[in-house]
Design a protein around this nucleic acid. Structure first.
Ligand code: FES
Ligand code: FES
Lengths: 160, 160
DNA sequence: ACAAGCCCGAGTAAAATAGTCAACTATTAA
DNA sequence: TTAATAGTTGACTATTTTACTCGGGCTTGT
Protein backbone atom coordinates (compact mmCIF):
# COMPACT_ATOMS: atom_id res chain seq x y z
CA UNK A 1 0.00 0.00 0.00
CA UNK A 2 0.97 3.56 -0.01
CA UNK A 3 0.21 5.00 3.38
CA UNK A 4 2.45 7.93 3.97
CA UNK A 5 2.39 11.07 6.06
CA UNK A 6 0.57 12.79 3.26
CA UNK A 7 -2.44 10.56 3.75
CA UNK A 8 -2.12 10.64 7.51
CA UNK A 9 -1.98 14.43 7.59
CA UNK A 10 -4.96 14.66 5.29
CA UNK A 11 -7.07 12.51 7.58
CA UNK A 12 -5.91 14.43 10.62
CA UNK A 13 -6.77 17.73 9.00
CA UNK A 14 -10.17 16.53 7.88
CA UNK A 15 -10.89 15.24 11.33
CA UNK A 16 -9.99 18.64 12.72
CA UNK A 17 -12.48 20.14 10.32
CA UNK A 18 -15.11 17.69 11.49
CA UNK A 19 -14.45 18.50 15.13
CA UNK A 20 -14.82 22.23 14.55
CA UNK A 21 -17.64 22.06 12.11
CA UNK A 22 -19.86 24.34 14.18
CA UNK A 23 -17.28 27.14 14.28
CA UNK A 24 -17.87 28.14 10.69
CA UNK A 25 -15.09 28.08 8.09
CA UNK A 26 -11.77 26.96 9.51
CA UNK A 27 -8.56 28.48 8.26
CA UNK A 28 -5.59 26.38 7.36
CA UNK A 29 -3.59 28.44 9.85
CA UNK A 30 -5.82 27.12 12.62
CA UNK A 31 -5.38 23.56 11.55
CA UNK A 32 -1.68 24.10 11.18
CA UNK A 33 -1.42 25.27 14.77
CA UNK A 34 -3.65 22.68 16.32
CA UNK A 35 -2.33 19.68 14.45
CA UNK A 36 1.28 20.67 14.00
CA UNK A 37 1.24 20.49 10.23
CA UNK A 38 3.06 23.03 8.08
CA UNK A 39 0.76 25.59 6.50
CA UNK A 40 2.34 25.28 3.08
CA UNK A 41 1.93 21.57 3.13
CA UNK A 42 -1.71 21.90 4.11
CA UNK A 43 -2.28 24.17 1.15
CA UNK A 44 -1.06 21.42 -1.11
CA UNK A 45 -3.25 18.81 0.52
CA UNK A 46 -6.40 20.89 0.54
CA UNK A 47 -5.97 21.70 -3.08
CA UNK A 48 -6.56 18.03 -3.80
CA UNK A 49 -9.27 17.61 -1.20
CA UNK A 50 -11.17 20.46 -2.78
CA UNK A 51 -10.79 19.07 -6.28
CA UNK A 52 -12.25 15.81 -5.07
CA UNK A 53 -15.18 17.69 -3.60
CA UNK A 54 -14.55 16.71 0.00
CA UNK A 55 -14.33 20.29 1.25
CA UNK A 56 -15.78 23.67 0.32
CA UNK A 57 -13.73 26.82 0.55
CA UNK A 58 -14.55 30.45 1.25
CA UNK A 59 -12.10 33.16 0.39
CA UNK A 60 -11.34 36.43 2.03
CA UNK A 61 -11.39 37.44 5.68
CA UNK A 62 -13.51 35.14 7.78
CA UNK A 63 -13.07 32.48 5.15
CA UNK A 64 -11.63 29.02 5.37
CA UNK A 65 -12.62 25.44 4.69
CA UNK A 66 -15.48 23.27 5.80
CA UNK A 67 -16.61 19.76 5.03
CA UNK A 68 -18.75 19.60 1.93
CA UNK A 69 -21.08 17.02 3.48
CA UNK A 70 -21.94 15.41 6.77
CA UNK A 71 -18.97 13.90 8.57
CA UNK A 72 -20.72 10.55 8.61
CA UNK A 73 -20.76 10.52 4.85
CA UNK A 74 -17.02 10.93 4.41
CA UNK A 75 -15.05 7.73 4.80
CA UNK A 76 -11.40 7.70 5.75
CA UNK A 77 -10.79 5.86 2.49
CA UNK A 78 -12.17 8.84 0.57
CA UNK A 79 -9.69 11.17 2.19
CA UNK A 80 -6.70 8.94 1.65
CA UNK A 81 -7.43 8.18 -1.96
CA UNK A 82 -7.97 11.88 -2.55
CA UNK A 83 -4.39 12.71 -1.70
CA UNK A 84 -2.59 9.41 -1.96
CA UNK A 85 -3.72 8.12 -5.30
CA UNK A 86 -4.40 4.52 -4.33
CA UNK A 87 -4.63 1.98 -1.56
CA UNK A 88 -3.06 -0.80 -3.57
CA UNK A 89 -0.52 -3.31 -2.43
CA UNK A 90 0.07 -5.07 -5.72
CA UNK A 91 3.18 -4.28 -7.69
CA UNK A 92 1.31 -4.29 -10.95
CA UNK A 93 -1.33 -1.84 -9.80
CA UNK A 94 -4.23 -4.13 -10.53
CA UNK A 95 -3.39 -5.39 -14.00
CA UNK A 96 -1.86 -8.79 -13.48
CA UNK A 97 1.31 -8.27 -15.46
CA UNK A 98 4.29 -7.85 -13.23
CA UNK A 99 6.25 -10.86 -14.40
CA UNK A 100 6.92 -10.80 -18.10
CA UNK A 101 3.45 -9.44 -18.79
CA UNK A 102 1.84 -12.22 -16.84
CA UNK A 103 0.55 -12.61 -13.34
CA UNK A 104 3.16 -13.27 -10.68
CA UNK A 105 2.85 -15.91 -7.98
CA UNK A 106 1.64 -13.55 -5.30
CA UNK A 107 -0.70 -11.27 -7.20
CA UNK A 108 -3.79 -12.84 -5.71
CA UNK A 109 -2.51 -12.37 -2.19
CA UNK A 110 -1.78 -8.66 -2.53
CA UNK A 111 -5.01 -8.18 -4.31
CA UNK A 112 -6.94 -9.60 -1.38
CA UNK A 113 -4.93 -7.59 1.08
CA UNK A 114 -5.70 -4.40 -0.78
CA UNK A 115 -9.38 -5.18 -0.67
CA UNK A 116 -9.16 -5.89 3.02
CA UNK A 117 -7.53 -2.54 3.73
CA UNK A 118 -9.92 -0.68 1.51
CA UNK A 119 -12.95 -2.23 3.16
CA UNK A 120 -11.65 -1.33 6.56
CA UNK A 121 -11.03 2.28 5.66
CA UNK A 122 -14.39 2.55 3.93
CA UNK A 123 -16.12 1.33 7.05
CA UNK A 124 -14.87 4.20 9.16
CA UNK A 125 -16.19 7.70 8.61
CA UNK A 126 -14.98 10.98 10.03
CA UNK A 127 -18.23 11.01 11.96
CA UNK A 128 -17.34 7.70 13.59
CA UNK A 129 -14.00 9.05 14.64
CA UNK A 130 -15.42 12.23 16.13
CA UNK A 131 -17.62 10.15 18.39
CA UNK A 132 -14.77 8.16 19.83
CA UNK A 133 -13.64 8.88 23.32
CA UNK A 134 -9.95 8.73 22.48
CA UNK A 135 -10.38 11.34 19.79
CA UNK A 136 -12.46 13.56 22.06
CA UNK A 137 -9.73 13.49 24.65
CA UNK A 138 -7.02 14.52 22.26
CA UNK A 139 -9.24 17.26 20.87
CA UNK A 140 -9.89 18.59 24.37
CA UNK A 141 -6.19 18.66 25.07
CA UNK A 142 -5.59 20.60 21.88
CA UNK A 143 -8.09 23.25 22.89
CA UNK A 144 -6.37 23.68 26.22
CA UNK A 145 -2.91 24.19 24.83
CA UNK A 146 -3.77 27.16 22.61
CA UNK A 147 -0.72 27.91 20.49
CA UNK A 148 2.21 26.39 22.30
CA UNK A 149 4.80 25.66 19.69
CA UNK A 150 5.10 27.52 16.43
CA UNK A 151 6.44 25.61 13.51
CA UNK A 152 6.55 27.28 10.16
CA UNK A 153 8.29 30.49 9.18
CA UNK A 154 5.00 31.51 7.71
CA UNK A 155 2.93 30.99 10.84
CA UNK A 156 5.24 32.64 13.34
CA UNK A 157 4.13 36.24 12.85
CA UNK A 158 0.99 36.34 14.97
CA UNK A 159 2.45 35.65 18.39
CA UNK A 160 0.87 38.45 20.48
CA UNK B 1 2.44 0.33 6.49
CA UNK B 2 5.59 -0.46 4.73
CA UNK B 3 4.83 -2.90 1.96
CA UNK B 4 7.46 -2.62 -0.67
CA UNK B 5 8.92 -4.84 -3.36
CA UNK B 6 11.36 -6.13 -0.80
CA UNK B 7 8.56 -7.76 1.15
CA UNK B 8 6.77 -8.85 -1.98
CA UNK B 9 9.87 -10.49 -3.40
CA UNK B 10 10.52 -12.23 -0.13
CA UNK B 11 7.07 -13.76 -0.09
CA UNK B 12 7.35 -14.75 -3.73
CA UNK B 13 10.70 -16.41 -3.14
CA UNK B 14 9.47 -18.24 -0.07
CA UNK B 15 6.46 -19.44 -1.97
CA UNK B 16 8.75 -20.73 -4.68
CA UNK B 17 10.62 -22.63 -2.02
CA UNK B 18 7.37 -24.08 -0.73
CA UNK B 19 6.30 -25.15 -4.20
CA UNK B 20 9.59 -26.96 -4.82
CA UNK B 21 10.03 -28.34 -1.38
CA UNK B 22 10.30 -31.92 -2.62
CA UNK B 23 13.17 -31.14 -4.99
CA UNK B 24 15.73 -30.84 -2.21
CA UNK B 25 17.67 -27.65 -1.61
CA UNK B 26 16.80 -24.90 -4.09
CA UNK B 27 19.49 -22.54 -5.31
CA UNK B 28 18.92 -18.82 -5.44
CA UNK B 29 19.80 -18.96 -9.11
CA UNK B 30 16.77 -21.17 -9.67
CA UNK B 31 14.49 -18.80 -7.85
CA UNK B 32 15.99 -15.88 -9.67
CA UNK B 33 15.15 -17.44 -13.02
CA UNK B 34 11.70 -18.64 -12.17
CA UNK B 35 10.52 -15.54 -10.39
CA UNK B 36 12.43 -12.87 -12.23
CA UNK B 37 14.26 -11.52 -9.22
CA UNK B 38 17.88 -10.44 -9.34
CA UNK B 39 20.24 -12.97 -7.75
CA UNK B 40 22.16 -10.36 -5.80
CA UNK B 41 18.97 -9.03 -4.37
CA UNK B 42 17.85 -12.49 -3.36
CA UNK B 43 21.08 -13.02 -1.48
CA UNK B 44 20.33 -9.95 0.54
CA UNK B 45 16.81 -11.08 1.30
CA UNK B 46 17.76 -14.62 2.23
CA UNK B 47 20.38 -13.38 4.59
CA UNK B 48 17.60 -11.93 6.69
CA UNK B 49 15.25 -14.84 6.20
CA UNK B 50 17.95 -17.15 7.46
CA UNK B 51 18.73 -14.98 10.46
CA UNK B 52 15.06 -15.09 11.41
CA UNK B 53 15.15 -18.87 11.14
CA UNK B 54 12.65 -19.16 8.31
CA UNK B 55 14.99 -21.06 6.01
CA UNK B 56 17.90 -23.46 6.34
CA UNK B 57 20.85 -23.29 4.01
CA UNK B 58 23.30 -25.83 2.66
CA UNK B 59 26.57 -24.71 1.19
CA UNK B 60 28.65 -26.15 -1.55
CA UNK B 61 27.62 -27.85 -4.77
CA UNK B 62 24.14 -29.31 -4.58
CA UNK B 63 23.36 -26.87 -1.82
CA UNK B 64 20.70 -24.23 -1.59
CA UNK B 65 17.83 -23.20 0.64
CA UNK B 66 14.80 -24.96 2.02
CA UNK B 67 12.04 -23.99 4.39
CA UNK B 68 13.00 -24.60 7.99
CA UNK B 69 9.54 -25.87 8.89
CA UNK B 70 6.31 -26.98 7.30
CA UNK B 71 4.85 -24.48 4.86
CA UNK B 72 1.67 -24.39 6.89
CA UNK B 73 3.56 -23.11 9.87
CA UNK B 74 5.03 -20.08 8.13
CA UNK B 75 2.67 -17.14 7.87
CA UNK B 76 3.04 -14.47 5.24
CA UNK B 77 3.37 -11.99 8.09
CA UNK B 78 6.47 -13.82 9.31
CA UNK B 79 8.16 -13.43 5.95
CA UNK B 80 7.32 -9.77 5.58
CA UNK B 81 8.38 -8.77 9.03
CA UNK B 82 11.61 -10.70 8.52
CA UNK B 83 12.69 -8.44 5.69
CA UNK B 84 10.54 -5.39 6.07
CA UNK B 85 10.96 -4.55 9.70
CA UNK B 86 7.35 -3.79 10.54
CA UNK B 87 3.77 -3.78 9.38
CA UNK B 88 2.92 -0.53 11.10
CA UNK B 89 0.89 2.31 9.75
CA UNK B 90 1.30 4.74 12.62
CA UNK B 91 3.71 7.61 12.27
CA UNK B 92 4.97 7.19 15.80
CA UNK B 93 5.74 3.51 15.43
CA UNK B 94 3.52 2.42 18.28
CA UNK B 95 4.50 4.87 20.99
CA UNK B 96 1.82 7.50 20.96
CA UNK B 97 4.04 10.55 20.68
CA UNK B 98 3.95 12.04 17.24
CA UNK B 99 2.55 15.42 18.18
CA UNK B 100 4.70 17.22 20.70
CA UNK B 101 5.34 13.99 22.60
CA UNK B 102 1.65 13.26 22.83
CA UNK B 103 -0.80 11.18 20.91
CA UNK B 104 -2.09 12.70 17.70
CA UNK B 105 -5.74 12.72 16.66
CA UNK B 106 -5.49 9.73 14.38
CA UNK B 107 -3.19 7.43 16.30
CA UNK B 108 -5.99 5.09 17.27
CA UNK B 109 -7.14 4.73 13.71
CA UNK B 110 -3.75 3.74 12.32
CA UNK B 111 -3.21 1.48 15.21
CA UNK B 112 -6.35 -0.45 14.41
CA UNK B 113 -5.52 -0.56 10.75
CA UNK B 114 -2.12 -2.01 11.50
CA UNK B 115 -3.70 -4.71 13.60
CA UNK B 116 -6.14 -5.48 10.84
CA UNK B 117 -3.39 -5.92 8.29
CA UNK B 118 -1.28 -7.96 10.63
CA UNK B 119 -4.15 -10.30 11.46
CA UNK B 120 -4.87 -10.82 7.81
CA UNK B 121 -1.28 -11.66 6.96
CA UNK B 122 -0.97 -13.92 9.96
CA UNK B 123 -3.99 -15.88 8.86
CA UNK B 124 -2.44 -16.90 5.56
CA UNK B 125 0.40 -19.38 5.49
CA UNK B 126 2.65 -20.38 2.64
CA UNK B 127 0.89 -23.73 2.81
CA UNK B 128 -2.46 -22.06 2.20
CA UNK B 129 -1.09 -20.30 -0.82
CA UNK B 130 0.41 -23.44 -2.32
CA UNK B 131 -3.00 -25.07 -2.24
CA UNK B 132 -4.70 -22.30 -4.18
CA UNK B 133 -5.65 -22.92 -7.73
CA UNK B 134 -4.46 -19.55 -8.95
CA UNK B 135 -1.02 -20.16 -7.53
CA UNK B 136 -0.87 -23.66 -8.97
CA UNK B 137 -1.63 -22.30 -12.40
CA UNK B 138 1.11 -19.71 -12.29
CA UNK B 139 3.53 -22.32 -11.00
CA UNK B 140 2.65 -24.67 -13.83
CA UNK B 141 3.24 -21.89 -16.33
CA UNK B 142 6.63 -21.19 -14.82
CA UNK B 143 7.70 -24.80 -15.22
CA UNK B 144 6.71 -24.71 -18.86
CA UNK B 145 8.67 -21.62 -19.75
CA UNK B 146 12.06 -22.88 -18.55
CA UNK B 147 14.47 -19.97 -18.75
CA UNK B 148 12.96 -17.43 -21.07
CA UNK B 149 14.33 -14.07 -20.10
CA UNK B 150 17.64 -13.55 -18.37
CA UNK B 151 17.95 -10.57 -16.10
CA UNK B 152 21.07 -10.12 -14.06
CA UNK B 153 24.69 -10.02 -15.15
CA UNK B 154 25.25 -12.67 -12.58
CA UNK B 155 22.59 -15.06 -13.81
CA UNK B 156 23.16 -14.83 -17.53
CA UNK B 157 25.95 -17.39 -17.88
CA UNK B 158 24.01 -20.65 -17.88
CA UNK B 159 21.87 -20.28 -20.97
CA UNK B 160 22.39 -23.71 -22.59
C1' DA C 1 42.14 -28.43 -6.57
C1' DC C 2 38.23 -26.61 -8.36
C1' DA C 3 33.82 -25.11 -8.99
C1' DA C 4 29.20 -24.54 -7.10
C1' DG C 5 26.88 -22.19 -4.10
C1' DC C 6 26.12 -19.56 0.09
C1' DC C 7 27.73 -15.28 2.89
C1' DC C 8 28.56 -10.41 3.82
C1' DG C 9 29.09 -5.53 3.67
C1' DA C 10 29.75 -1.45 1.28
C1' DG C 11 28.30 1.47 -2.26
C1' DT C 12 25.01 3.87 -5.43
C1' DA C 13 21.55 5.65 -8.92
C1' DA C 14 17.02 6.69 -9.15
C1' DA C 15 12.72 7.60 -7.28
C1' DA C 16 9.60 9.11 -3.82
C1' DT C 17 8.64 12.05 0.13
C1' DA C 18 7.96 15.93 2.65
C1' DG C 19 8.15 19.79 2.40
C1' DT C 20 9.19 25.19 0.82
C1' DC C 21 8.39 29.47 -1.69
C1' DA C 22 6.66 33.14 -4.41
C1' DA C 23 3.26 35.20 -6.72
C1' DC C 24 -1.54 35.39 -7.65
C1' DT C 25 -6.83 36.07 -7.07
C1' DA C 26 -11.05 36.74 -4.56
C1' DT C 27 -13.49 38.72 -0.71
C1' DT C 28 -14.58 41.62 2.92
C1' DA C 29 -14.04 45.14 6.62
C1' DA C 30 -12.81 49.76 7.54
C1' DT D 1 -10.91 52.48 -2.22
C1' DT D 2 -7.76 50.39 0.17
C1' DA D 3 -5.72 47.05 2.94
C1' DA D 4 -5.79 42.81 5.03
C1' DT D 5 -7.25 38.07 4.96
C1' DA D 6 -7.27 33.80 3.08
C1' DG D 7 -7.51 30.56 -0.57
C1' DT D 8 -4.95 28.94 -5.30
C1' DT D 9 -1.37 27.49 -8.06
C1' DG D 10 2.80 25.68 -9.70
C1' DA D 11 7.50 25.18 -9.52
C1' DC D 12 11.35 24.01 -6.89
C1' DT D 13 14.40 21.42 -3.44
C1' DA D 14 16.60 18.71 0.30
C1' DT D 15 16.30 14.43 2.32
C1' DT D 16 15.21 9.80 2.65
C1' DT D 17 14.11 5.40 0.96
C1' DT D 18 14.27 1.90 -2.43
C1' DA D 19 16.07 -1.27 -5.17
C1' DC D 20 19.35 -2.66 -6.47
C1' DT D 21 24.94 -3.82 -7.84
C1' DC D 22 29.63 -5.28 -6.86
C1' DG D 23 33.49 -7.49 -5.05
C1' DG D 24 35.25 -10.33 -2.34
C1' DG D 25 35.00 -14.01 0.97
C1' DC D 26 33.88 -18.88 2.96
C1' DT D 27 32.23 -24.09 2.61
C1' DT D 28 31.78 -28.30 0.70
C1' DG D 29 31.06 -31.99 -2.77
C1' DT D 30 33.54 -34.28 -6.57
S1 FES E 1 1.47 -8.12 -8.22
FE1 FES E 1 0.06 -8.21 -9.84
S2 FES E 1 1.12 -9.49 -11.23
FE2 FES E 1 2.53 -9.35 -9.64
S1 FES F 1 0.44 8.09 14.89
FE1 FES F 1 0.88 7.55 16.93
S2 FES F 1 0.83 9.47 17.92
FE2 FES F 1 0.42 10.01 15.88
Amino acid sequence: MRLTTKGRYAVTAMLDLALHYDDGPITLADISQRQGISLSYLEQLFSRLRKRGLVDSTRGPGGGYRLSRNAHEIAVADVITAVDEKVETTRCGGLANCQDDQQCLTHELWSELSQQIYDFLCGISLGNLVERQGVQEVAARQRGQASSVSLSSRTTEESL
